[in-house]
Design a protein around this nucleic acid. Structure first.
Lengths: 117, 117, 117, 117
DNA sequence: GTGGTCTAGACCACG
DNA sequence: GTGGTCTAGACCACG
């Protein structure tokens, strides 16, 4: 579930950060669901607890999760519409960069049809 | 032309690297055009000459530019089709990430129509 | 009455501790009034009974409440003057921090006029 | 300059964080001024470099400082008016809490006169 | 030299 | 058991 790539140039704590967001958006982690504890996740991923803690702290600062002292970390209230918008804005950037390179919108639309998960 | 963001977390040398590619694809830098010298570009961007040199070295390693000793750096022969394909592969990644979040291809196509440069 | 914020970084037992003092000073809890039992308050606040017990213990150590074994916890004799002084000392700290930042006493006085409960 | 209290219950990194803000507001650290390096400050304060780094990272996340890779950390552009407003809002909270305890605005104003730095 | 990341491991408050 | 803080120390990319 939390497959991370230790070789990647993306820091591990950032991969965990992104993974949690992904799991929330996919609906795998729902509102108020408890995240794995820092210790458990660090064991599962075979990374240092501090690394997981850093990811969780950043998620908390971003209001994506909250922690109850002594109890654990939980998924915050989610505004799915807002999240969707944020994702689409990221997509806009992708598209814009591509258009700048001289590609047409039709080329992009055709390309989308060829993409599979 | 080479507007880079010194505060960005993307390394400066990488920004320069990407910028050169962008300028080539946009047709601003054409085949065999001479790039600014390391010294001049470093002054213009107010960055360390080593940083520019590193970008140029990587561009050369990627066969995107070539250098003639004592004369400067030049744009290599360009295979526009190959470049286009590389850009579209980047775009695929963008799309895939978005689909994973539950958005539909139609939503993406509509979104493209709303993007302006 | 005992509205506490479970997500706050201020420990829950400390919030309860402060709340009791606040209720006493506001005159809502009067001398010899009985506090809610640990069990009841913990249910009402949906927190661990140990947490409420800790708050009560500290309140007792501070002589703010007293407990009669088997009967419950009660508000101690109140020296309103002493309490007022303690609050004003806290206020001094607030003011001092603000002055250190270069604000004038007149600015603070004007600001007070704008504050409403 | 960076006197911190290792005994305090306020985390060291948070004390450093607050101290930097204080120095900025007092005008001791001006726009684009370079902060002491993580290593130097950690030696001066006799704390672990990681602790200083954590403070700096939070300051950067809050846009109060920025770091140039390989060069150091610097004070961001400052909107003094906005900062002043933020401080006054904190003061409001202080005042409100005091008023809730039944003190009058006149009492607070008199109290301010007695405060010295 | 600079900050960024990570490990290993400790201790603590809270509940 | 849970997260939060901190130390000691390593390695890395960037410039």
């Amino acid at each position: 579930m939390f497959d991370i790539d230790i070789q990647s140039r993306i820091p591990i704590y950032e991969q965990i950060y992104n993974k949690v967001i992904e799991l929330i958006i996919k609906g795998i982690l729902v509102e108020n669901a408890q995240l794995p504890s820092v210790r458990n996740l660090s064991k599962e991923l075979n990374v240092n607890p501090n690394t997981v803690a850093k990811a969780y702290q950043e998620l908390e600062r971003s209001k994506i999760i909250y922690s109850l002292s002594g109890r654990g970390s939980f998924v915050s209230e989610i505004d799915r519409e807002k999240m969707k918008e944020r994702i689409l804005e990221d997509f806009d950037i992708c598209v814009r960069e591509t258009l700048q390179f001289g590609l047409t919108k039709d080329e992009l639309k055709n390309r989308i049809d060829g993409v599979s998960l």
